[in-house]
Structures are given as structure tokens and as C-alpha cells.
Design a protein around this nucleic acid. Sequence first.
DNA 1: TAAAACCCTCACGCAAGCGTCATGGTCAAG
DNA 2: CTTGACCATGACGCTTGCGTGAGGGTTTTA
Lengths: 123, 123
Amino acid sequence: MSVRIGDLARVAGVSVRALRYYEEEGLVRPSRAENGYRCFEERDVEVVRQIRGLIEAGLPTRIIRDVLPYLDGPGELMPEVPCEHMLDEVAAHRDALERRIRCLTRNRDALNAYLDAAVRRSA
Amino acid sequence: MSVRIGDLARVAGVSVRALRYYEEEGLVRPSRAENGYRCFEERDVEVVRQIRGLIEAGLPTRIIRDVLPYLDGPGELMPEVPCEHMLDEVAAHRDALERRIRCLTRNRDALNAYLDAAVRRSA
DNA sequence: TAAAACCCTCACGCAAGCGTCATGGTCAAG
DNA sequence: CTTGACCATGACGCTTGCGTGAGGGTTTTA
């Protein structure tokens, strides 16, 4: 029923060590079997992919830990009484993402322009 | 006429140490005065901002060094005879940026959805 | 002309995100 | 019942992107 760490690593495309690290950082919270083995869930596959994407995008784990609870879909399980302070933090994260997206988009467009020009020249 | 490292640091919003590091990594190539001081150009302000954005977006300096020459605008100063291999590398960088952008966009949208829901609930 | 304020080059230090043993329990297969 | 494939917990190592002196010239300011 439960997914073991090796299986999750293979399916999600990360190392076993990385998964243990993510647990240390509080990004995933597997339960434990009687023998001490970590028990992951099916949904952790997507969670880990999400984590990978965010880490590759440059977000530190402590921020990922903060925003991960809000990324389960459109407000499915929202924390009770979201206090102002937390909302501000989430909004700040959103703004940071916005800036990163704009920066990356500009650079992607520039690379595309370069590639286009190179192709036209070789034609 | 030339910009000194301290001025550039203030204007571009980075540390002097960071600028020296960028030079070590080949991201900027200031000339030198007779006294050994680094001579930056006005345009380096924007270059450094560009670099900062890419680093914050998670790109390692060696990749930034690779793509930076192609980000000066739409193919203004294109390297002579861009070999296939290099074009492939640039395209790969572009694809990596694309993936990052999609990941960040998904997460930004999720955060927005969360924030919207929170606001509606408090209303 | 002397203190401030910059600049230079080493060079060590540090946090993040794992890689990589070392050492040892667990469990299905032969 | 032993071999091999997994699992666990330390714990040290490495890379990246700088921070932070140490030690010593230069240039502007008082």
C-alpha cells in the first residue's frame, strides 16, 4: 500500500538521499513502518516533482516548505483563519515568483531571437 | 568616464565582492586602469542586473556565461559562424528556461488562487 | 600632510543541497 | 541460512555564491 523510498526515488526521478534531505527540511512527512522504513504515499510523487521544480527554479527549501501547503489545488484544504501576516508572506512569495518569471521570460525570448536569427542566416 | 567597482556596486545593487566574483567567473570583463583599478562601462549596470536576475532564478554562473553573449538584444553582435553544437547548447538552455517558467507559473497561479480564496472568505 | 575612503589580491569561512561512505538492521530468493 | 537488494542513521565531503578579514597601495578630503 505504502510507497518505499527507493520506489519513490525512481518514479519521481530523484535520489534517495534527496528524499531523506527533503524530509529533514520538512518538505515531506512520510510515516514509518514498524521496522523504521519510511512510508510515502502515492501523491508524494507529484509533491516531489513539485519540489524539484521549485528547487531548480531557485527557491530555497524553507520557502518551499512555507508555500507547499497552499499548492494542493484551488484552496482545497485551506488553513483555518489565515492570519494577515501569513497572507502577506504568501503574497511576497508570489511577487518573488512574478519577478523571476518576468526575468526568465525576457531571457528566453532573447535566446529565441538569437536562435531565430541564426537559423535565418544559415538558410 | 569609466565606472569604478564601488559605484557600479551601489547602482546595480550588489556587493563589491560579488562583482569581483562575477569577473572571476567570466561574466563581466572590466578593463584595468594604470593603478590596477577595474574600469567598468555604463552598460555593465544593466548587464549586472541581468546576471542577478538569472542567478536568483537558479541558473549557475557557467550557464549564464554561456548565454550572456546572446542577450544583448535581437542578434546585434552574433558570433561568427555559430556552429551546430553551440546552437544546440543554446537551445537546451532555452528549453530549461521554458520548463522553469512553466513550473514557476503554475506555482504562482496556485498561490494566487489561494490568496483569492482567502480574500473571498474574509469578505 | 595625515586621515578617510577606495582599490587590490590572497585566502579562509559559511549555508544550501545533496553525494558518498561507514556501519548495521530487514527481508525475499536460492 | 546465507547472499543480495533495500532500508536506516550518522557523518564527512564537495560545489556554488558570495561574506569577511588581513595586509597593503591610491586618491580624495580636511
